[in-house]
Design a protein around this nucleic acid. Structure first.
Lengths: 135, 135
DNA sequence: AATCTAAGTCTGAATTTTGAACTCAGATAG
DNA sequence: CTATCTGAGTTCAAAATTCAGACTTAGATT
């Protein structure tokens, strides 16, 4: 987890990834949303690409020149659960219970949540969880 | 989630919280484990206390003077799922699948994992999840 | 030929982080 | 009682990072 901390332990990186999860993928759009300094944004995007979390994909809209899109890789998508858990936490503990957002199924709109489950999918109490070395 | 990013978006804060989850609660123990500069560690611990994530609790061991312990508050405990999800991600994507650690039930040792579930507890695909404003 | 725009690079000033040394208060040793 | 030790900080100057804002570049448009 030390490496995960190294990757995510940065104010802008977390926010950039949130943008990516929202589907924002262009440099200037992110810059506008986040109001991050250009040099810092460039730097963070490059590290995320170097780490294999984002991918720089050239694309071309009709009658326009080639642009760069930053999109989540498979590994980047894998962070979704972490972000959802974080959003859920913010909802419960930071905004004081008056939840402005919730996690839902994007098609049916049914409420979803992140939970700890055992091998059979039965819910488990997070307080019982421990990190163990595997053999 | 912007606030969550503000709180966690920091290299040391993430590592400090990991220590707290492992049960390390004394300043000097953390300093030794993390090799963080004293001033930075002091600063981060204070912000975490100010945010209500850690609590500074005086305690006294027999024949010793009073010490300070930094322990997770209820809100801090709430971050467990986020951390477990992050550990699970690191396991799957950073360490290249050769997982050194896993999440288990601390009493039975049964493997656990973080998952997205619907209202009935049935598993859902994280790719289907979206953040929505609540009415 | 001049202008526009997305996506940068460059620059010097402001802020944050760092390591090392110093402080302070209570416990314990001599 | 005086000296010493230790946990938990402060303080300080040097080094690294971040910032805002100006400049650059390569295609597309006027």
């Amino acid at each position: 987890m030390a490496l995960a901390a190294e990757i995510l332990g940065d104010r802008w990186t977390l926010l950039i990834l949130r943008e990516a999860f929202y589907g924002v993928c262009r440099y200037d759009d992110m810059r506008e949303d986040l109001k991050a300094p250009r040099s810092t944004l460039t730097d963070r995007l490059n590290s995320l690409v170097a780490r294999g979390i984002l991918e720089k994909r050239p694309y071309q809209e009709a009658g326009d020149r080639v642009r760069q899109a930053y999109v989540l890789t498979q590994a980047g998508q894998g962070l979704a659960l972490t972000f959802l858990a974080l959003a859920q936490w913010g909802e419960a503990h930071v905004t004081g219970g008056a939840a402005p957002v919730g996690v839902v199924d994007r098609e049916t709109g049914a409420p979803l949540h992140v939970a700890l489950v055992d091998a059979e999918g039965a819910p488990a109490d997070p307080a019982r969880a421990a990190l163990r070395l595997r053999r």
